[in-house]
Design a protein around this nucleic acid. Sequence first.
DNA 1: GTTAATACTTAAGTTAGTTTCACTTTGGTA
DNA 2: TACCAAAGTGAAACTAACTTAAGTATTAAC
Lengths: 222, 222
Amino acid sequence: MNLSETEENYLKALYYICTDGDAAASTNAISARLETSAASVSDMIKRLADKDLVIYEKYKGAFLSKKGKTIAVGLVRKHRLWEFFLVDKLGFRWDQVHEVAEQLEHVKSPELILKLDQFLGFPKSDPHGDPIPDAAGNIQRLALRKLSSFSENDELILMGVSDSSVEFLQYLNQQGLNLGAKVKLGSKFPFDQSQELHLENKLKVVISLHVANSLLVKKVNS
Amino acid sequence: MNLSETEENYLKALYYICTDGDAAASTNAISARLETSAASVSDMIKRLADKDLVIYEKYKGAFLSKKGKTIAVGLVRKHRLWEFFLVDKLGFRWDQVHEVAEQLEHVKSPELILKLDQFLGFPKSDPHGDPIPDAAGNIQRLALRKLSSFSENDELILMGVSDSSVEFLQYLNQQGLNLGAKVKLGSKFPFDQSQELHLENKLKVVISLHVANSLLVKKVNS
DNA sequence: GTTAATACTTAAGTTAGTTTCACTTTGGTA
DNA sequence: TACCAAAGTGAAACTAACTTAAGTATTAAC
């Protein structure tokens, strides 16, 4: 099954839309994600359905077949391994890697990915805390919770983000909130739901509810 | 100047044809190298000439403009850096890397190449002994000679190959002739111009004239 | 110098992926 | 239960890169 880059991007879009939504992906949802027209999507989805990568019913939306899902997970694996490489080996910041990984993930060589994985030491999660599927396609579900679900004095470790936009990641960098950082929750201010965080270096930062909802954490020693 | 992968491949083909031939590249030479029809080449070369990347005169062949050459050298640089990475970091053999590097070289991110170069320690030549252009596009010409131009008892170091085909590289692997290997020339057999080589591990191999012409070497301590 | 073979270009048509625009289906609201 | 807005589809047309087929230049041969 030799797919074009475009076809691969459609599969990946389907994967992301269906795994957070769970229902079939609507034509518009796909066109929005890929920044293309709805008509292009109709067209392409039909072709992917012909190849048995997608299950599609007119006017009802589409989702990945088993075959399509396997390919999509492979792409996610490649993307996240390259992101890890870029940050861990080449010294990119976590907010700089998405676009480059987007290109690297389309390089076709199973051998390359196996060797890269080994070279990187079989990492379990990418620089944004998202899990890296293993060679068999298994994804280790990390039981992470939003920071906003914890209480004052809880000690937490930053494990991931649910918003990977460049803007948000740069904001976190500037506040010293990096992956793996240990933080202790301070007081919450009820009037706007903002919250104090105490960092390891004794500094204190105040984050908005939006930020607290986008940070995925685990309790220290759990 | 955002070029398609295809356009980049044409520039690279032009670069290779013109630097070993030196004259303008003929339409057929290009079509042979890219395994495409002469008509496609005429078409594309015209378009590249419109973009001022190629100097083209109908029926007279084409060569790279200054701008085109800069881009082509950049591609060669990327290709060779990736080949070095694949062999040195990921553990590929030198006969396995060409095709993968062919894909990786089209990834667009100047930042990526700068950081990769640094990560690799600014290597000067790729796994086949070809020089890697630096970030400014300068190519360090290695003054290498064919093994066939040396005489009995000369002690040589294998520095590169002028034939990078998978078949040839695999043959060299099997004979224990790796880049950097030290060899001492033995007797030459006049009837078919084959020649004995003494390896460091005391083994002896006999190579054909064709092989002796394809091995690039330097004298020990020169 | 004419001719034949080779090299090259042009023209027309193909394919993948796109767009725009007009039409159809769906589903919520009254 | 009928209607309308939103969502989705189909058709036609565009672009990049390709092909084949046919025609034009160049070169080599005599």
